[in-house]
């Protein structure tokens, strides 16, 4: 049973948006909607500046409020690998999951009406491929793998660096880890 997770090494992100476009094509995401995004944050005053680049997506939380709040069971956390998924044919489009996610990781597919979000590209995992955003990540900032496998790139990445999760206080226990907040080495 793999335990999938992603590590985002922010130091290596260059805000190129390849992930954003790849994800849309791979998953047929409608125009103006997104499963993943990239934040550019700059603090300070010229010329004392600090930049943080951060890509965000569904955290596949181990304690997922979106799943708890779904009235139909359309949203669920898959037992075998921990990916938070959606049974589209069950979704009523009530948007409770959208409200429940503290990461704003969800949207309602405006062409089809169901709730949607990142699936860790589970259809690609089945074919033995990495998620589309990971495969195309120019900076190798996105790292994907099985937390239970000591040789997986996520484990190796986490061993060598301090990692945090987003909004730890929300108690969601995310499976997407972030390395080194500020891309500029302190």
């Amino acid at each position: 049973m793999p335990k999938y997770a992603m590590v985002i090494d922010q130091r290596r992100c260059v805000a190129c948006m390849a992930c954003v476009v790849a994800c849309k094509n791979e998953n047929d995401v409608p125009p103006e909607q997104y499963r993943t995004r990239v934040l550019e944050m700059v603090e300070g005053e010229f010329p004392q500046l600090r930049m943080e680049l951060r890509s965000e997506l569904c955290n596949h939380c181990d304690n997922p409020p979106c799943v708890y709040n779904c009235p139909t069971g359309a949203s669920y956390k898959r037992k075998e690998d921990g990916i938070v998924l959606l049974r589209k044919n069950r979704c009523v489009g009530c948007k409770a999951c959208v409200a429940a996610c503290p990461y704003d990781a969800r949207y309602i597919n405006h062409e089809k009406g169901f709730a949607d979000k990142c699936t860790f590209c589970e259809h690609r995992l089945k074919e033995g491929k990495e998620p589309a955003c990971v495969a195309t990540c120019i900076g190798k900032s996105r790292i994907f793998g099985d937390m239970d496998d000591p040789k997986s790139p996520v484990r190796i990445a986490l061993q060598n660096s301090d990692a945090t999760v987003l909004l730890e206080g929300a108690g969601t226990r995310p499976r997407v880890y972030y390395i080194k907040k500020f891309s500029k080495p302190e």
């Binding site: 090494d9 130091r11 290596r12 260059v14 805000a15 700059v42």
Partner: peptide, 30 residues
Amino acid sequence: QVQDFTEGLGRGAKLIVVDPRFSIAAGKAQ
């Protein structure tokens, strides 16, 4: 080239950026 750039940085290269604008690259520079 950008892949090489981030790989180099990932392997610990120091970065000097000369740019009147705080570019993405400048954001990564020592």
